[in-house]
């Protein structure tokens, strides 16, 4: 198995709160890797540090053998890491198609001069971006809403759109932050199928999720965070038996639950 992402001793502190301490984990190419833990365990912080939204206090991420730049989200995306948000963040006034097209930004290069003169490169690139975006909408199953404004889509479709937008950045690692949150049972089943399809197309998935059933059914391996520390990392069946994990969920973790 080839390693895609290696987190080395990641630490992050907010004032007096140690959100992440010394977290190391390894994600292999082609797998679905789950990151679980009680509320406030540091999962989203881990996402934010990985994708460059925060700068870590210590440690580094090695992606495809190269150290990821820290604190520079656009460079991380360029390296091939894409993410979605726990509370969906779409470009509300743009259409679904345009949301996905915006996601293709980093893989295109037209500049002001090209746009002004509408040279061949720009026109061709624009056509490809449009077609690709449409294909991605079809891929996640919402192509019929291509020209609908993002804010008017249903909750489940907004989730799908956000995933399509992330895929438009042509990632090797897709990081999904609680994609099933707020979804009903049917929508969750469809989401599971979509994630499996994405994995099937060779994209590695990092998944933060509360829905234990979804995680256990989907992930190849799972890491558990508690109070900013990694307390377990194994295949789902083993993690479920892990004493420390059971303790975290039943003991300290529960009082943080909302």
């Amino acid at each position: 198995m080839i390693t895609l992402l290696e987190a080395r001793n990641i630490g992050k502190r907010f004032g007096g709160l140690q959100a992440l301490s010394d977290v190391s984990l390894t994600i292999r190419k082609g797998e679905v890797y789950g990151l679980i833990g009680p509320n406030g365990a540091g999962k989203t912080t881990f996402f934010n540090v990985l994708t460059g939204a925060y700068t870590p206090d210590g440690g580094e991420f090695v992606f495809n053998g190269a150290v990821l730049p820290s604190g520079k989200p656009h460079l991380v995306v360029a390296q091939g890491v894409a993410r979605t948000f726990q509370n969906i963040r779409l470009f509300r006034e743009l259409t679904a198609l345009e949301n996905v097209m915006a996601g293709h930004h980093i893989r295109t290069s037209a500049g002001v001069w090209g746009i002004l003169t509408q040279n061949k490169h720009t026109v061709e690139e624009e056509r490809l971006t449009t077609e690709r975006a449409y294909e991605l909408l079809r891929y996640v199953g919402i192509e019929r809403f291509a020209t609908a404004t993002a804010k008017n889509l249903s909750y489940g479709d907004q989730r799908r759109l956000e995933i399509a937008r992330a895929l438009a950045t042509e990632p090797q690692l897709l990081a999904l932050d609680e994609p099933a949150a707020g979804m009903n049972a049917t929508e969750t089943v469809h989401l599971k199928a979509l994630i499996e399809q994405i994995r099937g197309d060779g994209i590695t998935v990092l998944l933060i999720e509360h829905d234990v059933k979804l995680v256990m059914g989907l992930c190849d391996r799972v890491a558990v965070l508690d109070f900013g520390r990694k307390i377990a990392e194994d295949v789902p069946a083993e993690v479920q038996k892990n004493e420390a994990v059971i303790g975290a969920y039943l003991g300290g973790g529960q009082k943080h639950a909302h």
Binding site: G52, P73, H74, R89, F91, R92, E93, A102, G103, A168
Partner: peptide, 16 residues
């Protein structure tokens, strides 16, 4: 437009 609608999300899809 992306930046105007949601700057954080714009960064997260690689817009400088």
């Amino acid at each position: 437009a992306a930046m105007r609608d949601d700057e954080l999300a714009a960064k997260a899809i690689g817009i400088n």
